[in-house]
Every structure is written in structure tokens, then in C-alpha cells.
Simulated assay, not measured.
Amino acid sequence: MDTTGQFMSSIINVFETHKRMTERAVEQVPDEKLHTALDEHTNSIAVIMKHVAGNLISRWTDFLTTDGEKSWRNRDDEFVDSFKSRAEIMEYWERGWSCVLEALKSLTAEDLEKTVSIRGEAHTVPLAIERSLGHTCYHVGQIVQVARIQAGDDWHTLTIPRGESEQFNKANWGEDGKSHS
């Protein structure tokens, strides 16, 4: 069994699934509401997306050879909404995701045995991957929640709608609605 291949395939799948979930949520939000925070103590969707992309670019550029917190990263600026349009937000978002996905797809079994640094702290490569995945998923949840609020009555659920689990299960697993694997 190729556990390295399975591990990497699973990690890439989870990153890609969360990227798509975010994009499906953001598509439902009017342009102006992408820049609107729920209150003065929270971040807008645009700001959270900027932070996620900035983090991914920093962590995954030269992942195996340089500290994940790059000297050129301006983390504080990630919390300032400087985007003029949805297209600018999405372009920066894509840049961050391209960085992580290309890096992950290039890793070998030997690379998983290595140690990398994040803010001067040593991490095994699997731990660094999991740390990045956890951080990204945390913010994806924020984006989806804010998008749900900002979309209001125009929201279309990203998963199984409330009250439709039994119908979904029957459609996917047969009359008794249970998996038979």
C-alpha cells in the first residue's frame, strides 16, 4: 500500500474541497458585501480571503528550503481591505491556492521525512501540512458563515439542506438510506 501517495492525495483533496466550498459561498455574495464586516470587531470576506492567500503564499513559497514566515510578508496588511473589485480578490486568492497546490503536488515520500521551519519553529513536513490545512479550514468556515449571512434569503446551501438528509441518503444509498460498504 502506498501510504505516502494516499496521504498526499487526501491532503490535496481536502484543500481543494475547501477552496471550492469557499468559492461557491463567495459566488452568492453581492460584490459590495464582500467588503462589509459584520461589525467593527470582525473581518470582511475580502479581508479573510486576503489573509488566507497571504498565509498560503508565505508558507508554501520555497516550502522545503525557507522559513514559512517570509521576511517580505506583511501580515498586518492582510487585514486591510485594499481590493477594488471581486476580480482582484479572486486573483490574489488563486495566487495563494496555486502556491499551496503546486507545492503539495511536488512533494515526494522523502520530503515527508524532512523538517521545515515556521516562525523559527521546527515542524515535520506532515505537521506543517496539517497546520496549514487547519488554519485554512478555520478561515474557510468564517468565510462561509459570513457569506451565508451576507447572502441572506438568496443563499443556496453548500451541503445537504436541512430536513433533507433522509431523502439524500435514500437517493445515494438505496431505500434504507444506509451505506453498505
Rank of each mutant, 00 (worst) to 15 (best):
2 D>L: 08
2 D>S: 09
8 M>F: 02
9 S>P: 01
9 S>G: 11
11 I>Q: 00
14 V>E: 13
16 E>M: 11
18 H>V: 00
23 E>T: 14
23 E>F: 13
23 E>A: 14
27 E>W: 10
30 P>T: 13
31 D>L: 12
35 H>Y: 14
36 T>I: 11
36 T>M: 11
38 L>M: 10
45 I>N: 03
45 I>W: 03
47 V>G: 03
48 I>S: 00
50 K>R: 11
53 A>C: 08
53 A>Y: 02
56 L>Y: 03
60 W>P: 01
65 T>N: 06
66 T>W: 00
66 T>D: 04
67 D>V: 04
67 D>R: 04
68 G>N: 02
69 E>K: 10
73 R>I: 03
74 N>D: 14
74 N>R: 06
75 R>K: 10
79 F>L: 08
82 S>E: 03
84 K>Q: 06
91 E>W: 05
98 S>R: 15
98 S>G: 13
101 L>K: 00
103 A>E: 07
103 A>C: 12
103 A>I: 01
104 L>T: 01
109 A>I: 00
112 L>F: 10
115 T>V: 15
115 T>Q: 15
123 H>I: 02
124 T>W: 02
129 I>H: 00
132 S>Q: 04
133 L>G: 03
134 G>M: 11
136 T>E: 04
142 Q>S: 07
144 V>W: 06
146 V>A: 08
146 V>S: 05
146 V>Y: 05
146 V>M: 05
152 G>K: 07
153 D>F: 08
156 H>I: 15
158 L>I: 07
158 L>H: 01
160 I>W: 08
162 R>Y: 10
163 G>A: 06
167 Q>I: 15
167 Q>M: 15
168 F>R: 07
168 F>S: 11
171 A>P: 02
172 N>I: 06
172 N>L: 09
173 W>T: 10
174 G>K: 09
177 G>R: 07
178 K>Q: 15
181 S>C: 06
181 S>A: 12
